[in-house]
Design a protein around this nucleic acid. Sequence first.
DNA 1: CAGCGTCTTCATGATTTCCTAATCTTGGAG
DNA 2: CTCCAAGATTAGGAAATCATGAAGACGCTG
Lengths: 228, 228
Amino acid sequence: MRLLLIEDSSRMRRGLEGSLRKSGYAVDSAGDGEEGLWLAETNDYDVVILDIMLPKLDGVSVLQQLRKKGRDLHVLLLTAKDTVQDRVNGLRAGADDYLVKPFALEELLARIEALCRRAYGRKDAVITVGDLTIDTAAKSAGRSGKPLDLTPHEFALLEYMARRQGVVVSRTEIEAHIYDDARSPISNVVDAAVCNLRKKIGGTAVTPLIRTRRGFGYMLTAGRPGQP
Amino acid sequence: MRLLLIEDSSRMRRGLEGSLRKSGYAVDSAGDGEEGLWLAETNDYDVVILDIMLPKLDGVSVLQQLRKKGRDLHVLLLTAKDTVQDRVNGLRAGADDYLVKPFALEELLARIEALCRRAYGRKDAVITVGDLTIDTAAKSAGRSGKPLDLTPHEFALLEYMARRQGVVVSRTEIEAHIYDDARSPISNVVDAAVCNLRKKIGGTAVTPLIRTRRGFGYMLTAGRPGQP
DNA sequence: CAGCGTCTTCATGATTTCCTAATCTTGGAG
DNA sequence: CTCCAAGATTAGGAAATCATGAAGACGCTG
């Protein structure tokens, strides 16, 4: 999952960026409203974490700009203030969630997780694909009860594909959601990652498997080749 | 919009019910977890407002039961407690939102509104033409339930024609939509592609078929040979 | 700072897909 | 009925796509 963090204080920004990365997210960040808006408009994020107090362009304005363009983004608003009117304003402006500073990191993580789930229409922290289980909260996966030993990137990839099971996801989409910032234009990171993941989760004709749709991308599904 | 309110205190319940009705919602209510769960399972609500402290079956359990059954519901959790752990638990259990008592009515309304807005996002990914099904998400097509093995170009062509079923599409249009780069002026790529596609999807007089309109182009339709 | 595990890139080989172009087939006008 | 042009079909080689193994780069931990 790829996040955008728009936060004024550079100390806070760095700290959060690190914590979020450790939790397995791809994170881009911006220090002011203008840069943040530009990033949000030109990339594909699952969740935007947006401070209200920002230089150049305040958080609520950024939010309004984004909503005006009809971007389907999930925005978590951070604020120091905590009056009912503030919350109502924030939510009315189109925020999906709202968190008051100071907050516990754990709560931020839980809320981000909830927003990610919502982004893909799931309600549960555990995703199942055939006999594969992916616990997005515990960041662990298993096959037929046996735990799988996945690296952070492998897990992120599996999670992303599981959230979109039955749907073909292109390399570009995968790259956009799993990896932060730009990388060399011609890279086969995704191929390699899929290859490694396949080796670990195994799977054959009938059992859940990552299928290659030549020319389109990959698809994770438990069903037979036919209709999902 | 139809809401379900599950709340212990009858005074609170009556009060909220009235306020919500005044705001234009249809409201059902329950006084304990069991009744609430039963109502939620047997009716179709847009949003469920769920208190955590409930007789017979507590709120989080109700939520878990609902999620286990895979109901696609939006749940707003109400609670008197406000510790980080509570919030984390609630969100992890699958709540879409969370509100701490006491709250302002206006804030509750704003949050319900936000949840209702979220009902979007489900667009139909499957196109049907006679007994042909085209799943644009899985990039797969089938005829009478049997999967077809199509190449990317074939699939793109079929999808394009299916989206315009019953309409004659010219070679030029097809070429413009399916092939991005310009190619030699006299090329029969489209002819060849249509030919290959026909071989794969089969079809005879009555069943869906790609028909040739001499001098104009092709048409995909499930109807009879007669004039469309 | 050394060691370990992880991530990325590169190179190779296997496979599939696509285009071109040459050859048939068919519809319909004269 | 005959002929012509639009369309259908076929096939082989060029090109794109993908899987995978191995080597170097990087970052973290002890």
